[in-house]
């Protein structure tokens, strides 16, 4: 537990210091949300109808963009070896890194979603449900992404491979996330529950798979 908290605290400190990536995911999120109307046109009716979908695509992309450095930075400077010598299981430490990363990227996205919903002329109910769906669903994205990040930790060009590996795995999250964000649909509630299930499942699979990928074996 000491190791878990120390790792979460260290990663939060790193994100907030100079050179850290704190807040960048949020800026990227805003940029993607801004770009889509330029492609579609400023039709508020159309935008409000597809608003949840835009928010989810933007959340998916901005979660993935920062993930390639999740383990790579630690691998490069050798602090990943430190984690390998820890008395705490590697799975716990992976979970700590995932939690810290989600606190820096996923949580701000979910909290800022209502604000960005304004840009897409979404109704207040749609903003509330989108925010809730993102709050519940983005941890699943981070956990699945962590597997890709662990697999590509030692690769020079991790970023693009990571996206190619992970994006197909996120399809269920996208499907249920958008469904849960739409208050007009009857299926919104079951979809939200399915999203909770996906997140819990991804937390288990993600931490174990990422730890297995990081464990030394040759």
């Amino acid at each position: 537990m000491t190791a878990f908290l120390a790792l979460v605290r260290r990663d939060l400190a790193l994100a907030s210091r100079v050179g850290g990536s704190g807040g960048l995911g949020l800026v990227f999120f805003l940029m993607v949300v801004t770009l889509i109307p330029f492609a579609l046109g400023p039709d508020l009716n159309l935008l409000s109808r597809i608003g949840p979908a835009i928010l989810w695509i933007a959340a998916l992309l901005s979660t993935l963009v920062g993930l390639d450095r999740l383990f790579q930075a630690d691998e490069e400077d050798g602090s990943l070896d430190l984690l390998r010598f820890s008395a705490a299981p590697l799975e716990v430490l992976v979970l700590a890194k995932v939690v810290a990363h989600w606190l820096v990227t996923g949580l701000p996205l979910a909290l800022a979603a209502p604000l960005f919903g304004l840009l897409l002329a979404m109704s207040p109910e749609a903003m509330a449900t989108s925010s809730l769906a993102l709050l519940v669903g983005t941890p699943a994205l981070t956990c699945l992404g962590a597997v890709g990040a662990a697999l590509t930790a030692t690769l020079r060009r991790g970023g693009l491979i990571l996206a190619v590996l992970v994006l197909p795995l996120t399809v269920p999250v996208l499907i249920f996330g958008v469904a849960a964000a739409d208050p007009s649909r009857e299926a919104a509630r079951p979809a939200l529950l399915a999203l909770v299930g996906l997140t819990l499942g991804a937390a288990v699979i993600g931490t174990f798979a990422a730890a297995a990928a990081l464990r030394p074996a040759e």
């Binding site: 109307p37 400023p42 508020l44 304004l118 840009l119 002329a121």
Partner: peptide
């Protein structure tokens, strides 16, 4: 306009 944001 009845809405907070228009792509003006």
């Amino acid at each position: 306009w009845g809405t907070y944001w228009v792509w003006d």
